[in-house]
């Protein structure tokens, strides 16, 4: 029983890692009022650029850095289209997704050619903590990007709730007119959050290609970026609840694999559905909770004259 729990929990934590980076990035962007459906495309670009850098140089930190830079460039692109050009955010995100998917596949075809592996970040046992029974085994024998993803949650909470910057981000998403009249630059804040979101999506991709899977293939993320966006709504723009959602989704997924491995006789299609069904049902069951969506989400800011 103990081994089963450890196995499922470790699996869930690994599965949740890319979602955490991408969902927190998206949460921050949405809190400032920008919806980006193109997370998956940015993740793919991050995954490819990190993979390629590591393949050519063997330097993992450089790979991570390149993924962050590429993510930031995509963030700038998204911010330019959504904030400066005030495009319809639902559709521009789809454009970003199609573009990122195509470009990463194209670069892979022309620059790498065939499937290869790299040696990525290896598990890093945290001294002392990793010796705690069960908990230590589950949480403290992971790789550095997994730790990073979990460390991001309190960090994001702190920034969003306890700093002037967080206050400005929320103000811009909640009531841009008021924020504007108080001298907060809507454009600057939104550029900042979207670029930050791009960087985090880049890390999310890198966590797949140079830490968890250590390989790249066309469409490596297989739609994870869309799940990451969905988890933002599950989390109702709160980092801790985003974490709950990501862990819920990933745990159910880990359990359904476990159910299959142990030959429990349910058609695989139904077990595969479970993470999606459970996420919806749990969210519906929480209908009574109070949600404060950023009022200006998906609404470009126009200064009244």
């Amino acid at each position: 029983m103990e081994a089963i729990i450890i196995g499922i929990a470790k699996s869930a934590i690994r599965l949740a890692t890319p979602y955490l980076y991408a969902s927190i990035g998206e949460t921050i962007g949405q809190l400032s009022g920008v919806l980006n459906l193109g997370v998956d495309g940015v993740m793919l670009m991050g995954a490819f650029s990190a993979f390629y850098t590591v393949l050519k140089t063997g330097n993992l930190w450089l790979g991570l850095l390149v993924a962050i830079v590429v993510g930031a460039i995509f963030g700038l692109l998204i911010a330019f289209i959504n904030v400066t050009l005030k495009a319809e955010q639902g559709i521009s995100g789809i454009g970003v997704y199609i573009f990122g998917l195509g470009l990463s596949s194209l670069l892979f075809s022309t620059m790498v050619g065939t499937v290869q592996t790299v040696s990525g970040f290896s598990p890093l046992s945290i001294p002392w903590l990793s010796n705690i029974p069960i908990v230590g085994e589950i949480f403290f024998h992971q790789n550095i990007l997994v730790y990073g993803a979990f460390a991001l949650i309190p960090l994001a909470w702190f920034i969003l709730n306890k700093t002037p910057l967080g206050l400005s981000i929320r103000a811009v998403g909640q009531n841009p007119e008021a924020a504007d009249s108080l001298g907060v630059s809507i454009v600057r804040i939104r550029y900042f959050t979207v670029v930050l979101g791009g960087m985090l999506s880049g890390i999310a991709g890198a966590s797949l290609s140079i830490a968890l899977l250590n390989v790249f293939q066309q469409n490596l993320t297989n739609g994870m970026g869309f799940i990451a966006v969905a988890l933002v709504y599950f989390g109702a723009w709160r980092p801790a609840t985003v974490l709950t959602g990501a862990l819920l989704f990933s745990t159910v997924n880990a359990i359904q694999i476990w159910v299959q491995v142990h030959g429990i006789n349910i058609p695989s299609d139904f077990t595969l559905m479970m993470p999606y069904i459970v996420t919806i049902v749990v969210l519906a069951a929480m209908a009574k909770r109070r949600i404060h969506p950023p009022a200006a989400l998906n609404k470009p800011f126009e200064r009244g004259e």
Partner: peptide, 17 residues
């Protein structure tokens, strides 16, 4: 033991399987 991933391209789920 047999697992089905439900997709030809879900590398992450194959890894967890």
């Amino acid at each position: 033991n047999v697992t089905w991933i439900g997709s030809y391209s879900d590398v992450a789920l194959a890894s967890e399987a």
